[in-house]
Simulated assay, not measured.
Amino acid sequence: MEWQQLEYFRVVAKTEHFHKAAELLNISQPALSRSIIKLEAELGISLFERVGRSVKLNKFGSVFLKRVENGLNEISNGVQEINQLKNPYTGTVSIAFLQTFGISILPEIVRDFNEQYPHVEIQLYQNNIFSSIQQLLNREVDLCLITPVKGHPEINWQSLFDEELFLYVPANHRLAERSSISLSEIGKENFIAFKKELGMREVINNFCEEAGFTPVIKFEGEDVPTLAGLVSAGLGITIIPEFAGISSGKIKKIFISEPYCHREIGLAWLKGNNLTPSGDLFRKCVIELFK
């Protein structure tokens, strides 16, 4: 049973006339008749009642027509969707990104791309680094906006830029008037930290280790606004990317002079896995944006 046979059957069923159907399909009437006879033979039943020069669907034909129309419409929709995906300017790109990128980094990237290519659908998945990598490995997303990927030779990772990290303290803290500080000066402070499953926890722990201490963790959170909020309540200090969501009357930002605290941010995709045209377009645009 072929798609063409089903289309021929549908046209005959709608016109109720082989000659008219053949003209619409731009084929000879004998060729159309042979196609319908072959279809009926495959099904083991007749689909039409012959009435003079016209034909009418019988009970079997009426039931079959409903299914054929649904099937052909679904196939047509599928072909249309594939054609949209083949076009880089109308397709879809899916991106996994870390929770801490949702405040400024990702919105800026998406806005810049959307201004250039407004008809590309962008699907976003906010997650921790481990879940983001797994989504990429499972081919659930095209790209990941994440920190460096280790231990996965099947993944390409392209560095985009460095993001500086700052010390944030309550406005009434003893260090609040300082403009800069060495990380070694805060070894005994209570820390508000990211949860262990988040990549930022390891990044900050490494800087603290470099400064000669292990941070005393009092509270944990999953995102920058939560950590900043806990700091503003006087519950500890934290190291996070620049954040402007809380009044300077409640929280103070201090530059860390030593060591240079930062994190690399980049774009990841699977090696040997051809991206969709829209995914490839997004990747090239983002890399060009940060050159």
Rank of each mutant, 00 (worst) to 15 (best):
E2D: 12
Q4P: 00
Q4Y: 00
L6K: 07
E7K: 05
F9L: 01
R10S: 08
K14M: 08
E16Y: 05
F18G: 04
F18C: 03
A21D: 00
A22W: 04
E23W: 02
Q29K: 15
A31H: 11
K38T: 11
K38Y: 13
E40W: 07
L43V: 03
I45R: 14
L47G: 02
E49H: 08
E49F: 08
R50L: 12
G52F: 10
G52M: 07
R53T: 10
G61F: 14
V63K: 15
F64Y: 09
F64A: 06
G71Q: 00
G71Y: 01
G71K: 01
L72W: 00
I82F: 14
I82Y: 14
I82D: 07
N83H: 14
K86P: 03
P88W: 15
Y89F: 14
Y89M: 09
S94K: 12
F97H: 10
Q99Y: 09
Q99N: 10
Q99T: 02
Q99A: 08
F101P: 01
I103C: 00
R111C: 03
F113W: 10
Q116E: 06
P118I: 07
V120Y: 09
E121Q: 11
E121H: 08
Y125C: 10
N127T: 14
S131N: 05
S132W: 07
Q134G: 06
Q134E: 08
L136Q: 09
L136H: 13
L137C: 07
L137R: 12
T147Y: 04
P148R: 03
P148Y: 08
P148D: 09
K150E: 15
G151D: 04
G151N: 07
H152Q: 04
P153G: 02
I155P: 05
Q158S: 12
S159V: 05
F161T: 15
F161Y: 13
E163Y: 01
E164K: 01
L165R: 03
F166L: 02
F166W: 05
V169M: 03
P170F: 11
A171I: 00
N172R: 06
H173C: 09
L175I: 05
A176I: 04
A176R: 01
S182A: 11
S184H: 12
I186C: 15
I186F: 14
G187D: 06
K188E: 13
E189F: 04
I192W: 15
A193M: 15
A193V: 15
K195S: 14
E197C: 09
E197I: 10
L198N: 13
R201H: 12
I204S: 00
F207Y: 15
C208A: 14
G212S: 10
G212R: 07
G212V: 09
F213R: 09
I217C: 07
K218M: 08
F219I: 13
E220H: 06
E220W: 01
G221Q: 05
D223K: 15
T226K: 11
G229N: 13
G229H: 11
A233W: 08
A233Q: 14
I237F: 05
I239G: 05
F243G: 02
I246C: 05
S247L: 03
S247W: 03
S248P: 02
G249H: 11
K250N: 04
K250W: 02
E258Y: 10
P259N: 04
H262F: 13
H262T: 03
E264V: 01
E264D: 00
N273L: 12
N273D: 13
N274A: 13
T276F: 04
S278K: 10
D280Y: 08
L281E: 10
F282S: 07
L289P: 07
K291H: 04
K291N: 06
K291P: 05
